[in-house]
Design a protein around this nucleic acid. Structure first.
Lengths: 152, 152
DNA sequence: GAAAACTCTAGTAAATTTATAGAGTTAATT
DNA sequence: AATTAACTCTATAAATTTACTAGAGTTTTC
């Protein structure tokens, strides 16, 4: 299960994707719109900023905004920042691989083989879905229309 | 990430799958073979038993054994018992669905749509992989041979 | 009836999660 | 230059989960 922190992060990123190009958005605004505890959200946005997916502007008129356009930020990137590796086991992680200490032969570990499939399937979905995709899919549901690009 | 508990459970289940049909196996044996703290393993096996995937025999000559043949127990069943639902969010779980309190319209929640894909992909893998599959895949790697059934 | 094994309830230390508090820094505006 | 709006950063803390441990109880076999 995703932690609340990760869920909050995704919601915040979606708000910022919606407002992309319209200048910085206040932490308080995001917090209120999405019902996220303000101070907790600060920490989350700070982390996303330090990892480079968000940028911020201090002082009056400041706030947060996406570091790249919404079609260049994947759900996988966001989830990894907050949640750590997507893999169910460290020994099948590509971004944070770690050998199991007790494992004699990785190639013959049945658990590993299955969990690697799960990791790959998860990564395939999350790394190929961008913030823009998420916004667009919502629209598709609402309007019943698909963009041409989407139906290819 | 899978908890140690779940990883221990899978290891224990694989041992019992290997010994299937040969009578009960001692908790201590499993614990020793897999390097699992004995008393902790007791709790895990008890839970698996109470959920029906394991059976046990008390007293001298007792021990644990699979409740069904290895080809009828899926990894998904075991993981769900220890870890809870496979879904990253309760609102996309089939076995433990729960609406998000703050969600106005589930159909238009971008996060939900993506996480549902992840759940479905995960479930497809874990529910279709049995203990026997895991044992057999290991053999395939070791011997370089595939059974006919497997290569279909 | 003694020993071997599982059963069950309780407890506990450490880690993680989910926050909250407050002083510090930066930028805009007057 | 003073004020105020905002983000930054460190520390702390409550609640929950994880990973065990202890021990008394029950069942079965010999």
């Amino acid at each position: 299960m995703l932690s609340k922190k990760t869920k909050y992060a995704l919601k915040a990123m979606l708000v910022l994707a919606k407002e992309y190009g319209q200048g910085p958005v206040l932490i308080s605004d995001i917090a209120q719109r999405e019902g996220i505890p303000r101070k907790f959200l600060e920490l989350i946005l700070l982390e996303l900023r330090n990892q480079g997916v968000l940028q911020s502007k201090k002082g009056k008129g400041g706030g947060y905004f996406l570091g790249r356009p919404p079609q260049q930020i994947s759900v996988g990137q966001v989830v990894r920042i907050l949640e750590g590796p997507l893999a169910p086991l460290p020994c099948v992680s590509k971004t944070a691989y770690m050998r199991c200490r007790e494992c004699r032969d990785e190639r013959t570990c049945g658990i590993r083989i299955v969990m690697k499939e799960v990791r790959d399937a998860t990564a395939k979905i999350l790394d190929s879905t961008t913030l823009e995709d998420m916004l667009r899919r919502v629209e598709v549901v609402v309007t019943g229309k698909e963009s041409l690009a989407f139906s290819i």
